[in-house]
């Protein structure tokens, strides 16, 4: 008999404290590829599932740097190379005038990178996700909390992972078909 591909195993909890505790114990048990779903922000949950680093700040910094260089470069090119114009006897290379544009484009570059980078890194919008195959997962947007061990985890074994999650006293444990 051919087994259906499995994305992972998911446990349902009723309170944020339970899912937080469960996430900590799952990581302590050695699982690394885990994820949690909650209708409200839960303090400490991101750290508990091992989300402690993101490349986003680096992208935002580079985006800001790019914006700033573009702003300054644009002004410099226009005023010094392309169309030098004598304004009130000031030198062509009047850099103080260009700082506001440099500043604005730094902000623009950084904020656009922050929004687009966030979407690129978290994969939103996602029209389909394997977790949707669990009917009760719809409650993750109302009043239930879910913890998921993914099949790609090195330690993953369907029976073991299910048994482990059962041991955390959840409201229910579900297999997620891929």
């Amino acid at each position: 008999m051919k087994q259906k591909p499995i994305y992972g195993v998911m446990a349902e909890f009723e309170t944020p404290e339970q899912v937080l505790e469960a996430a900590r114990r799952t990581r302590d048990a050695g699982y690394r590829s885990i994820d949690a779903f909650s209708p409200i922000p839960v303090e400490g949950l991101a750290e508990a599932v091992g989300f402690d680093w993101t490349a986003l700040p680096i992208f935002v910094f580079l985006g800001g740097l790019f914006g700033g260089c573009t702003g300054f470069g644009m002004c410099w090119y226009a005023n010094v190379i392309s169309f030098p114009l004598n304004v009130g006897g000031k030198p062509y290379n009047s850099w103080p005038m260009w700082i506001p544009i440099t500043f604005e484009l730094t902000i623009l570059g950084a904020s656009l990178t922050a929004v687009l980078g966030m979407l690129a890194l978290n994969g939103l919008p996602t029209p389909y996700h394997p977790t949707f195959n669990v009917p009760r997962f719809a409650m993750a947007s109302t009043d239930r909390f879910f913890l998921c061990i993914k099949a790609k985890d090195k330690k993953f074994d369907l029976a073991q992972a299910k048994a482990f999650l059962e041991g955390l006293h959840p409201h229910g444990v579900y297999e997620i078909e891929d």
């Binding site: 009130g88 000031k90 103080p96 005038m97 700082i99 506001p100």
Partner: peptide
């Protein structure tokens, strides 16, 4: 600080 400088520098 820069605003003050820029305005005075531009006004000259």
């Amino acid at each position: 600080s820069f605003s003050q400088f820029l305005i005075i520098w531009s006004g000259n």
